[in-house]
Simulated scan of single mutants.
Amino acid sequence: MVERASRFRTAYGAGPAHLLVLLACFTLTGWVALRLSGEADAIRMLLWFLGAVVAHDLVLFPVYATMDRGLRRFAHRPAVVNHIRVPALASALLFLVYLPGILGLGGSTHTSATGREPTPLVGRWLVLSALFFALGAITYLVRRRRGPSAGDRTRR
């Protein structure tokens, strides 16, 4: 049994649990695709999804990988990196999700869908981003004041 699992891991590249999770994800994705196939906007959604994949792989990933490499080079302490990386990720995700509202786009669509005038979100996004970074800085300072953790001691 152990030999069979070892051969499977060697051939597949990961354990059986990984394969099961992937199969579950593909099943869920297929179900959603079938549910959306009857929608009038299915082609637009598919094109948007493919555009998002291309934009991420060709534009966003190189940008944030380069920024992360620069951050790791700039921050001499490894503990600092995650206290900047996590707030930056949260801020970037909020920006992507609320991009039209932050940039003031899609006002007529928002009004027709909700019956309300859109409120500018750029101020709220900036405040939330500042709070994310402030929380990251406070967390870093608290951890630094406590002293090195067990993980920091093993890295030395």
Rank of each mutant, 00 (worst) to 15 (best):
S112T: 15
A113G: 01
A113R: 03
A113T: 05
T114C: 05
T114E: 05
T114A: 04
T114Q: 06
T114G: 03
G115H: 04
G115T: 05
G115Q: 04
G115N: 06
G115P: 06
R116M: 10
R116T: 09
R116H: 12
R116F: 15
R116N: 07
R116E: 10
E117T: 15
E117P: 01
P118W: 11
P118Y: 12
P118S: 09
T119N: 04
P120C: 01
P120A: 12
L121E: 09
V122N: 03
V122P: 00
V122A: 12
G123M: 08
W125E: 01
L126M: 14
L126H: 02
L126K: 02
V127L: 15
V127F: 14
V127M: 11
L128V: 14
L128D: 02
S129K: 09
S129C: 14
S129R: 07
A130E: 04
A130R: 01
A130G: 06
A130D: 02
L131D: 01
L131V: 13
L131Y: 06
F132P: 01
F132K: 01
F132S: 02
F132Q: 03
F133E: 03
F133H: 11
F133A: 02
F133G: 01
F133S: 01
F133L: 09
F133I: 05
A134Y: 11
A134Q: 06
A134D: 05
L135G: 06
L135H: 00
L135D: 00
L135Q: 00
G136N: 09
G136H: 07
G136Q: 08
G136R: 05
A137R: 08
A137F: 13
A137M: 11
A137K: 05
I138Q: 03
I138G: 02
T139Q: 04
T139D: 11
T139R: 06
T139A: 12
T139Y: 02
Y140N: 00
Y140E: 06
L141D: 07
L141A: 13
L141I: 10
V142R: 08
V142M: 02
V142C: 04
R143C: 05
R143G: 14
R144P: 01
R144V: 06
R144H: 07
R144D: 08
R145K: 05
R145S: 04
R145A: 10
R145F: 11
R146S: 12
R146G: 06
G147A: 11
P148D: 15
P148S: 10
S149D: 15
S149C: 13
S149W: 14
A150C: 07
A150K: 14
G151Y: 09
G151D: 14
G151E: 15
D152K: 08
R153Q: 15
T154P: 00
T154G: 00
T154E: 14
R155E: 14
R155Y: 08
R155K: 10
R155S: 13
R155F: 12
